[in-house]
Each structure stands twice: as C-alpha cells, then as structure tokens.
C-alpha cells in the first residue's frame, strides 16, 4: 500500500537562527574547551639532561652542526631535545575510549537504519 509522504513543518526564520547559533556554540565549545582548559595536547615528560655541550645532549658532530645552522646553542636546544612524549597509559582508560568509539558507531548505524527504512518506503512505495 502506498505510504503518505511525510510533510515536514516549515521552520521559522527565528528557529533557523536559533539552530545556527546552537551549532556555532556547540562547535566552538566542544572543540575549543579542551584547548582552553589545557586538557588537550600530548602527555609529555622531560629527560634529565645537562645542557653544557652538544655531547651532553646526545648529539654527534653532524647533529651539532645542523643545530647551529638553525640558530641554536646547547642551552636553547635543551628543551626541544629533552622533552619526550609519555606513552604510559592505563588499560581501563584505553578500554573506555574504545567503548565510546565503538558504541558511537553502533548507535549511529542502528538509528540510521531505522530512518533509512522511512526513506526507502517513501521513495519506492509510491
């Protein structure tokens, strides 16, 4: 039996403005808040290296030459050389993150399939 096509309501200009504003705020908040609160960015650690000479920083003669061409001294290069990523992590944190990603895709695919049935019914059952 032919299905009556769904007639969506017409959205007012004010409603469109509110939706646009909501999206703008959501985008800026969700993407910018982690940066603002300092939660974003790599977990870092600092190696305990003396900065008296290039050799102290583990740099050979060629490396030292290139650093100097770039305008660095052992003292100014110290932070760049001594800063390392900290890859230690907790298994629960990894599992929770994996769960969030998988659950997100599962829910979106499931809900989309429900909506897709209406789309196909309207398109092909007329």
């Amino acid at each position: 039996m032919a299905k009556t096509p769904y007639q969506p309501p017409q959205q007012s200009k004010f409603g469109q403005f509110v939706d646009s504003l909501f999206l703008l705020v959501l985008v800026l908040a969700a993407l910018f808040l982690p940066v603002y609160f300092g939660l974003a960015g790599g977990g870092k650690t600092t190696l305990n290296l003396p900065d008296a000479s290039w050799a102290d920083l583990g740099q050979n003669a060629t490396m030292a030459q290139q650093w100097e061409k770039l305008g660095y001294t052992p003292q100014t290069a110290h932070e760049l050389i001594a800063t390392r990523f900290d890859y230690s992590f907790s298994l629960p944190a990894l599992l929770i993150t994996a769960f969030v990603v998988i659950a997100y895709f599962w829910l979106v695919f499931r809900w989309s399939a429900k909506e897709y049935k209406d789309v196909i019914a309207e398109r092909f059952d007329r």
Partner: peptide, 16 residues
C-alpha cells in the same frame, strides 16, 4: 590515544 586521548574523547562527546 597515545598522547591525545582527551581530544579523542572530547570529539566523540561532540558528535554524540
């Protein structure tokens, strides 16, 4: 996740 796990979760929250 190695180093930027917070941003990964923040992005997922946004999309949810």
């Amino acid at each position: 996740f190695l180093g930027y796990g917070t941003q990964l979760v923040a992005m997922m929250v946004f999309y949810i």
